[in-house]
Simulated scan of single mutants.
Amino acid sequence: MNYLLLCDYRENLKDYSTDEIIYSDHPTSQNIAEILDAITSQGYDCKYFGGIPELIHAVDKKERFDNNIFLNFTDGMDQNYSRAQAPLLLEILGTSYSGSDVFSSVLMNNKHFCKQALRSLDILMPKSCIVNRQLAVKEKYIKDWQYPLFVKPNCEGSSLGISSENVCHTPQEVLRFTYKLLEEFDEIIIEEYVSGLDITNYLIGNPSSYYINDIVGAELFDSSPYAVYGLKEKHNKERILYYNNEFLTKKLIESIRAQSEKIATLLGARDICRIDYRINLSSGEFYFIEINSAPRFSSTSEIGFIAQKKGMHFKDITKLFIETVNKRLFPK
């Protein structure tokens, strides 16, 4: 069996740099080389295939990839629902690949409808609504909500469109900032702000068999009541990370892990995902915020931090990921 590494890299994509921030959250070519080296160093036959443009070319040429598995690490290009681009093209090609399928990727890419899909689970989620150019929001609809409210792009990740301005303390602020964001993004989600600590639950595996199910907490350098981890803070790495029992009780860890597995199963997440929460450490309540079907996979991201805390090398985590994909595709 041969593996083809699929990933678009930062140097070929849109640069979100400004006068204040030099930033892009797409993988770098160095990141791709790191993953490739981690795979091949363990004896797997793996080559770098390219990204979305190369997949489109393969579809146009009706190429076949028998006896190959695509390892999907791409965010996609810069259009809406970018994380669904690779699964869609790979389905057209009729080939095997890692990660979630088209429907699940689209659903997880949409924060609002992802929450709607999770209503059958007994989990905490901040009250929210969706706004776009056809679906307006009026002050009377949100005046009785619990303020402040958090206003952000509905179908973006990587902290795009996120700064301290997103925290709005009055209905007038909400309306003003919502329509400001609509100038750049097609769809906006408004939700009640949850005070507490950012935590993320990283999963590698599939139902009944998770190799990695670990929690990372992020404490921001900004100690203000409504601190936000936006583009500027992300670029400057203005946070401290904590691992599992460094900040959570055993009981709380088990509760978060169990809930994350339920969420991943219901949404159809395959092989890998990352689920973000906000947690109130005093009460122990944790609120689902969003899920990422294609989380960053590198030695310097959350999974690299988890590997370090587990006393593992990045290539060991990569091997677990390959074993996860193989086990799903070839259960016997």
Rank of each mutant, 00 (worst) to 15 (best):
G196C: 00
I92L: 09
L124Q: 13
C7N: 06
G268T: 03
L88Y: 15
A258H: 15
P87T: 03
D214C: 12
D214I: 11
N236E: 15
N110S: 12
Y242P: 02
Y147T: 07
L88Q: 14
A294M: 14
M312G: 10
I22E: 15
R239F: 14
P27C: 02
F103W: 13
Q85M: 10
S224D: 01
Q259I: 09
A33F: 08
M312N: 12
S195F: 06
K234Y: 10
K111R: 09
I322Y: 10
K319I: 07
K111W: 03
I32N: 10
R328N: 11
N236R: 15
F70D: 02
A269F: 04
E91A: 05
I289F: 03
R10I: 06
S96Y: 14
R278K: 14
D15K: 12
K152E: 04
T28I: 01
F288Q: 06
L88E: 12
Y81V: 11
D78H: 13
Y9F: 10
L90N: 02
L220P: 01
K152V: 05
K251A: 12
K127N: 12
I199Q: 01
I123R: 11
R274C: 03
L203F: 01
S158D: 07
L90Y: 04
L175S: 04
I289P: 05
T249P: 08
G161A: 08
E165M: 11
A269C: 11
T170V: 09
G94T: 07
T318F: 05
A307S: 12
A218F: 11
K327L: 12
Y23A: 03
K138I: 11
W145H: 08
R257S: 08
I279E: 02
E192I: 04
E183I: 09
N326E: 15
I56Y: 08
C155F: 11
I21V: 11
S164G: 14
I291V: 10
E233F: 06
A86Y: 03
L252W: 05
V102M: 10
F305M: 05
H57T: 14
R176P: 07
F73D: 02
C129I: 13
I199H: 01
A269S: 10
Q308A: 12
L93C: 02
Y202W: 06
N166T: 02
G51S: 01
I22M: 14
H112W: 08
Y141D: 15
A58I: 02
P295F: 03
Y9P: 05
V325C: 07
Y97L: 00
L55A: 02
E20P: 05
Y211A: 10
N80S: 13
K319T: 09
M1T: 06
E11Y: 08
S24H: 10
C168L: 01
F177K: 11
G230S: 04
F314D: 05
I130V: 13
G230N: 05
S100L: 00
H26S: 13
H313E: 15
K62D: 05
I32R: 14
I92W: 05
K262S: 09
A58W: 04
